[in-house]
Write a protein that binds this DNA or RNA. Structure first.
Lengths: 166, 166
DNA sequence: TAAGATTGACTCGTCAATCTTT
DNA sequence: AAAGATTGACGAGTCAATCTTA
């Protein structure tokens, strides 16, 4: 039942027995699982001509409900990237005709980003495949395991947020 | 106790009640936790003039034990990146005098990458801080929670590897 | 032919600077 | 001033192509 991370911990135990490197067992597996999951999810996005970044924007607009309209700042706050990354994502999506940018009526500093009919159509077609893929990827875990994993990741996230540099 | 991901799930439940998006509760938190952890770990690497990529290479060489020597291919297999990424990491580390590249005696196609005394010194100084940081980041989780999280991430990783495209 | 290592072109992110509006 | 959005320069990864050796 030993995995790659166990081998790493054994090496450290041999080379630096003075250090308790057990937290690496958590962070190492967290990084690897996230990377693997990204790769598996990307495969399905690609079949719809999308990548994670583009899907993320389209899906955020979609789930916000009609009129499927948010500002770059709003998109930034739910994505975990900077506003400049959002601007560049929007450039690509706008070029493809999947979103449109229009000036906000109430505040001249703000831009409204709206899902076009083509964008709505695309995300609604990709979404069921994406969700089915996620179900498939979790098939190896029982309902109880999924629930526990969710709770533990929530606790870890909270701890990590609390310790963020101010 | 609701978090960002719960809000996302609620939006989907409203907009697409036909889809069971519960797996997003796992994958969303996995991605967020991994991203947050990376940011917290980078802070300590930076105090030693390192980033995660550089530290990863130096630490892999360090824990392999004397003579702290591996090939790019060996480094690639434990890192989760391509060999070209390894080559570029090595270019930077070699320029800084932290590793050296020498031809392998037994196989002319192979390069030996060795930790220099400066590289060994740097990684041995950064390591205790890194480990202490990881302990600090996990302080919010009990021993039982860490153990459970490890087991669940291991199970998830195994499932994800099994479902990799061949 | 195949394996190992490297490079160059490209993509996507961050950061710092800029522009506009409040 | 401050807030929102965007751009340009840069860093680090991937992929495809190349070079050397087995």
């Amino acid at each position: 039942m030993a995995d790659d991370v166990d081998a790493i911990l054994e090496q450290w135990a041999r080379e630096r027995p003075d250090l308790d490197v057990s937290p690496m067992g958590v962070f190492g597996r967290l990084a690897r699982a996230a990377r693997l999951a990204d790769a598996r999810l990307d495969e399905v996005f690609a079949t719809h001509g999308l990548d994670r970044a583009s899907f993320d924007v389209l899906a955020t607009l979609r789930r916000s409900g009609p009129p499927y309209r948010l500002t770059p700042g709003e998109l930034q706050r739910t994505a975990m990237v900077t506003t400049s990354a959002i601007a560049q994502r929007l450039n690509k999506l706008e070029e493809r005709g999947l979103v449109s940018r229009t000036p906000n009526a109430a505040d001249g500093r703000v831009i409204d980003v709206t899902l076009t009919p083509a964008g709505l159509d695309l995300v609604d077609r990709a979404l069921p495949d994406h969700v089915a893929n996620e179900h498939r990827l979790l098939a190896g875990l029982s309902a109880r395991q999924r629930s526990q994993l969710t709770q533990l990741l929530r606790a870890l996230t909270e701890s990590l947020q609390q310790l963020a540099e101010p």
